[in-house]
Amino acid sequence: MSSHSMKKYKIGGLAPLILVLSGLCLVPFFLRAYLVEVAMMYFIYIILAQSYRLIVTVHDWQLYHIVLYGVGAYTSGMLAKNLGVPVFVAIPLGGAMAGLVGMAITLPLLRTKGWGFYIATYGLAELIRLTWLKFRNPFGGSTGIIDIPWPPVIAGIDFSDRIPYYFFSLGVMLLVMLMLYRIEKSRIGDSFKAISMDPELAASTGINIPRHRLMACSIGGFFAGVAGGLLVHRLGAVDPKLFNITTTLYLLIWVVVGGTNTFWGPIIGVSVMHTLFELSRPLIEIRPMFFGLSMVLVLIFLPGGLEGLISKAITRLQKRDRVAPVET
């Protein structure tokens, strides 16, 4: 992955943001039921991809993010079903559990460098996933858990209905994005990037690298867990297959194709790639090949991802506005 380019450019101020938001608020009233469900998946995937990017800014391309998403889903689902914890309390608790698990599995691997680290994270992710598969009690084995409680009725709004849940997940996504944005722009976010650019220099200025890596993994894990909670109380069921290596590959594809240099990359990645995913349903068998190839090609020819391409185009346009082209 190439570098973090910190070049300044404006995507266009607040106006487009307000436009997009009002669009998102109107959309569920006009779309078919199925498409509203699809839209909710976008929100969940954007939370996943953005929280993953936070970890990537420290250069830890771990492969257990999807399993932490699962930890959130299982925890939240089981708390609600077995212990009667209210759904809206269970979801953040699922996030907390995912954050803790993320920290626990990163801890023994902190001294393992580069590739060994990535592989080991894959191994430990499988360990967790296989635990769900192996222990029918309490995880339900390969069939997973069903009859997970729906969200309740609050102030006359039934959150198990499609449109209220749409707004609930939209709200959660925006909140997560705001928090991640604040971290990104803070000194902590800068320290993460500093570590990935020059770990030796970062350590020499007093940045405790293991602590920051653990922090990134657990914060990222927390949000992945929240995404899992959002998923499980909409599906009403959960099983280990949802969190296997294939889902991890799709996460990588969103993040890589979108670009990891800025905050907006993963959003672009999910928006474009998941739309293509939905559109290519008729080609379901060869679809993975297209996605795999597109990631390979982006890595080789477009290291900044789609976001890099767009921002480059914008800066070029701005330049052309400022300096009139000279006719020759």
Binding site: M6, R182, I183, R187, M197, L201, T205, M215
Partner: peptide
């Protein structure tokens, strides 16, 4: 040794890590 993709000012801001400690909850 520098953070090549940071601005000059940002390089120094990051290096002030030790003297600008803030926990994650206050940041969020």
């Amino acid at each position: 040794a520098l953070y090549h993709h940071f601005s000059v000012l940002k390089n120094v801001i990051v290096a002030r890590h030790l003297h600008a400690k803030e926990n994650i909850f206050r940041v969020i």
